[in-house]
């Protein structure tokens, strides 16, 4: 089981890094996040700055923006996961090999999340560089990292599922964007609703839980929110591929 999962995710990573896409995305993310690291840092350094603390003012702001950037680029990475296998015909190779669909989907999922882990590690190097000159609230940073990672794997699982629905990576990306956008704006749509509905809506929204992590509140509810979301979409993906073999 584990052997097959590592095999699939290993191949996924290898093919990812063989294409220029992965490198370009890593570079662009790093650059954009760097901008959103630099701007709050400069603002903090202004003599008339009213910010409360460096971690809050700079690091949390950066992680907040990083989430939006990952949200925007992630569908481009996840779109090809299964749709491309289908397009190339390699899905028949996978289906006729002695590996289960669960192993295939988990392999794909871990492959892409390892890539995200790398991306987040690189992002984290920037606030880590501040440690040379000052002290930071490491707890809050750790909580932000965990929060960002949980958010990314959730986004990845949504992308993975939509990639399993179609043969065309572009359609998979568009669908993923649509659902991510919905999960993002669902909070805004709740402003005029009754308190109960507003509560549900803002509870469902992706970034509400993330904000807790950013402010250093490490809450199991938030962790479970992301984990449940992720496992829900992974299960849907396995289910979809399983059904496809019976009814195409």
């Amino acid at each position: 089981m584990i052997r097959n999962i590592t095999l699939i995710s290993g191949n996924e990573l290898r093919r990812l890094f063989k294409s220029p896409l992965a490198w370009i995305i890593l570079a662009i993310t790093q650059f954009l996040v760097a901008v959103f690291f630099y701007i709050p840092l400069i603002m903090y350094l202004q003599p008339n700055s009213v910010a409360s603390g460096l971690t809050d003012a700079v690091v949390s702001t950066m992680f907040g923006f990083a989430a939006y950037i990952i949200l925007m680029i992630s569908p481009l990475l996840t779109m090809r996961l299964i749709a491309e296998e289908r397009q190339l015909g390699t899905i028949k190779l996978l289906f006729s090999s002695p590996i289960s669909i669960t192993e295939l989907v988990l392999g794909k999922f871990f492959g892409i999340t390892i890539f995200y882990a790398l991306m987040i590690m690189m992002i984290t190097l920037m606030p880590a560089s501040l440690l040379f000159g000052t002290s930071l609230d490491l707890g809050q940073i750790l909580s932000s990292i965990i929060g960002l990672y949980l958010l990314t794997i959730t986004i990845a699982s949504i992308g993975l599922f939509f990639s399993s629905l179609t043969k065309s990576p572009v359609i998979a990306a568009i669908n993923t964007y649509a659902i991510l956008f919905l999960l993002l704006i669902i909070k805004i749509s709740s402003t005029n609703a009754s308190t109960t509905v507003a509560g549900i809506f803002s509870y469902l929204s992706l970034d509400n839980h993330y904000n807790n992590f950013l402010s250093g509140i490490f809450n199991t509810t938030d962790i479970f929110y992301y984990l449940i979301f992720t496992s829900f979409f992974i299960s849907l993906c396995i289910w979809k591929l399983d059904i496809e073999r019976v009814n195409k």
């Binding site: 093919r15 063989k18 294409s19 190339l88 015909g89 390699t90 899905i91 028949k92 006729s96 002695p98």
Partner: peptide, 21 residues
């Protein structure tokens, strides 16, 4: 399926190749 599929080698009509490998 796992036991059975170990005994098969399948070449589909559309060649299952990864171009970037």
């Amino acid at each position: 399926p796992k036991l059975a599929k170990k005994n098969i080698g399948f070449l589909s009509e559309q060649l299952p190749l990864y171009n970037d490998l």
